[in-house]
Simulated assay, not measured.
Amino acid sequence: MEHRAGESPPSSPQFSLPDGGSVLIAGPAMTHKRRLMLSLLAESDDSQRGGKIVVTTRKPAPTITTEFEHIAGHSAEQFEVIDTTSVADLLSRDARSAQSRYVSNPGDLTGIGIHLTESLRTHFEAGRTARVGLHVLSTIAMYTDLKRVFQFLHVITGRIAAAEFTGVFTLDTGFIDDRELELLKQPFDALIETRETESLAEVRTRGLDIGPKTWTPLRV
């Protein structure tokens, strides 16, 4: 979905995110989950003062920021990245973005939780709305056991809901079985499933009435 710099952020006619809830985008790798997550984060809120916070476990902070700006069509203001990719080890302190926080690795759930909670509190105390994205849970699950991942998600989605913010998390399903998927889905209010067909990616939703209930071409 292309648009010119300076225009309003794109709207997503396919989805309407809940206020005070979190959504899981789950599907095979390479089904545009990160782009969908960023497009949902880029949707403008009524106050035009909303913050965006992204936890990234694969792409470094500069890449996530650039992708967001391309999708949103404007510079990333009130946009923060919590980077767990160890990219900070390759950057001098002068090169690190003031809008980014760094955690040693995706398995450091305590570090991620501390940074994320601080960011949420900052937006809440400033009277701003906020949308939180996390890409991708599968990497976190490679570093720690699923019980800890579930506990982390239960706490974070609870804090997002309590502040009446919105969360959008992604999960690659090819690395887990059905039982594990059912466990990781529990903290979320709704599920957006993705799949790849011969010609394009498709989506459908489960849970809240936030999007198409049958497989529909993905437009992002």
Rank of each mutant, 00 (worst) to 15 (best):
T216M: 08
D177T: 05
E69D: 02
F15A: 06
T197S: 15
R93Q: 12
V220L: 13
E67N: 15
D46K: 12
R195W: 13
H154W: 12
I53Q: 00
E77T: 14
V54Y: 09
S11D: 15
V136R: 00
P13V: 10
G211D: 07
E43Y: 07
Q14H: 06
D145E: 15
D45P: 00
S39R: 11
S16L: 10
D209F: 04
G107I: 03
R128S: 05
A161M: 11
R159I: 09
L17Y: 07
H123Q: 13
D45C: 01
T65S: 11
V149C: 15
D46C: 01
H74C: 10
I71D: 00
D45F: 02
K213L: 10
V136C: 11
T117I: 04
D94G: 12
E69V: 06
E180S: 08
D83L: 09
I156N: 00
L36W: 06
Q78T: 13
N105D: 15
S97R: 13
H115R: 12
V81F: 05
G133K: 11
L41Q: 08
L90S: 08
A141F: 09
A163V: 06
D178E: 14
R34G: 12
P62C: 06
H70N: 13
G51S: 15
T31K: 09
G167E: 13
S199G: 03
Q14S: 11
E2V: 02
P10K: 09
P60L: 14
S92A: 06
H135L: 02
T173H: 05
A190W: 00
A5Y: 14
P28N: 08
I53H: 02
T173V: 04
V136D: 13
A95P: 04
E80Q: 08
E182H: 10
G167K: 03
A162V: 10
R101F: 11
A130W: 04
V168C: 05
V87C: 09
E180K: 09
E182T: 13
G174L: 04
A88P: 01
P18N: 15
V103C: 08
V155L: 10
E118L: 11
L208K: 09
H115M: 14
R128M: 03
F165T: 01
A29F: 15
P217C: 12
I192N: 03
R128K: 01
F68Q: 03
F188E: 00
Q14V: 07
